[in-house]
Design a protein around this nucleic acid. Structure first.
Lengths: 143, 143
DNA sequence: TCAATAAAGGAGAATGATTCTCTTTTGATA
DNA sequence: TATCAAAAGAGAATCATTCTCCTTTATTGA
């Protein structure tokens, strides 16, 4: 997603295009590590030194509400954000705070079939997210 | 899980048996709605009016570390707790804060088979949790 | 049964992420 | 280009959680 796409999405949702909103969305995309509000702030202050903390939180909230980004859940009391919008799941490191995206259409279809067949009494499924916890065995463990 | 079992588990883990720990574990079990620390505090203060807030947080942390309870993740910045220890997943209401347990061994086996066959390059899976988001269609929507 | 002692609890301050309030600025529109 | 609602800025406020420090208590082993 690049700037023109960001602009288009904001317009679609009736949101004003502001430098702050673009910078925040870009930051999440560039950082590419499901950043916290704090990491986003640090990154943005390099180019927008005067942005207010509250602005970042307000923008993040607006972007989540309008589906331009998603919240990523963790076992910590810090929220993280994801600008990758295709259906996907997450790999969580059991050793660090690293989180990676995981795409698996075969899995998605398998789950659909399973729940179509089986159903859950008293519950209408809208979405299914997998949290896959484990160890990353490659080098870049800093993410 | 009743008191004797709680005692046994605490001893197994080398934790001292204190009235506060028992009360907190009992509270989570009795409340049975994946309560927050605050809900647990309210419940416990009925019988232990003098328990300190910090005690509840410290006990919860100790219980999580020793596997007697688990943290339940939410999209809010409030932690919730679960004393149900068998492998299970969660149903999340998209309309309220209600969360219910979901057991499905068939699903678990299907997932095991899938990832055994497929694997994830650079990642060693330790656990898989499903978050099933949707609408509860039964009455008791207060949980 | 009791003394010793390390672990746990109590109280309240401190922290840190997030939210709120209020004022100023700005993007969209006509 | 003026208008005006939406958005941003600044800093205080809030709220969940953690920390510090002191007191109490559960366990142990004499």
């Amino acid at each position: 997603m690049k700037i023109d796409e960001i602009r288009k999405k904001l317009i679609e949702k009736g949101l004003k295009i502001t430098p702050q909103r673009i910078a925040i969305l870009e930051a999440i995309i560039k950082l590419n590590n499901h950043p916290t509000a704090e990491l986003i702030l640090d990154y943005i202050r390099k180019t927008h030194p005067n942005i207010a903390t509250a602005t970042v939180y307000k923008v993040l909230e607006a972007l989540v509400e309008n589906g331009l980004i998603k919240k990523v859940q963790t076992e910590r009391d810090i929220m993280r954000y994801d600008a990758f919008l295709e259906k996907h799941h997450h790999l969580y490191s059991s050793e660090s705070d690293r989180i990676e995206d995981y795409l698996d259409d075969e899995l998605n279809e398998m789950l659909s079939r399973h729940f179509e067949k089986k159903g859950i009494p008293g519950f209408k499924i809208e979405d299914i997210k997998l949290q896959i916890i484990g160890k990353f065995t490659d080098k870049s463990s800093t993410k």
